[in-house]
Amino acid sequence: MSDPNIEGFELEKGFKGMAKDTGSDQTMFKGVHWGKAMMWIFLLSDTFVFSCFLIAYMKGRSSTPAEWPNPSEVFALDAFGVPVPLLLIALMTFVLITSSGTMALAVKYGYEKNRKMCGYLILATALGGLTFVGMQAYEWSKLIHEGVRPWSNPFGAAQFGSFFFMITGFHGTHVSIGVIFLFIYCYKVFAGHYDKGKRGWFTKMKGDYVEVEILGLYWHFVDLVWVFIFAFFYLW
């Protein structure tokens, strides 16, 4: 089912019209695909998950008696012998945001039924995500090498490592799941499933390019969450 184009039906204007349409029969969000609505609501719920994590982090950081490690030292990366603060993170953030851009383009080409472009752009997005996960793995191993553990670390409060590994790990899991789906969708696009409306392997729902957009929503969300994690861990 793609966005239905409702015949003989027009949205009413103004605030009153909005209220009336909102409460009116059949759909609350007029013309919004079910899957898309579902993804939005899932993301709202997921926002609460990440908010809980970040609020717990704020509370944990402010109430622990030991001193909090200085992020710009802990996260510095040696570039040609000079420790540059935030270098790796800047790169990671850049890669992830770029991948959001390619995802947006993939959605556009998908709706234009440009199978090739859409497929390549999804592939690019997936590779961007993979790079991000790789860099994160690098950062983790570097920290672990320096003695940072979830339960303790040489720089200060033990909670630093606990929250860092938990929250970036949880976010990294989101990215990894996204990458897996990107590869699957990439295959489906190239195989033409969305052009033919081939039914899903499990869901038995007819394929449609709207699925690319739904995955895109997820991807942008993961990206946005990263910006917050970035701000809270690396800049605070």
Binding site: I41, L44, S45, D46, F48, V49, S51, C52, F53, A56, G60, P150, W151, A158, Q159, G161, S162, F163, M166, F170
Partner: peptide, 25 residues
């Protein structure tokens, strides 16, 4: 439920880590 269960999920995860890895959330 969609907005409240996240808090349960998060607290479960954090407690699991306290139990398994010895973190001190």
């Amino acid at each position: 439920a969609m907005l409240a269960f996240p808090a349960l999920l998060v607290s479960s995860i954090m407690m699991t880590l306290d139990k398994l890895l010895g973190t001190s959330f």
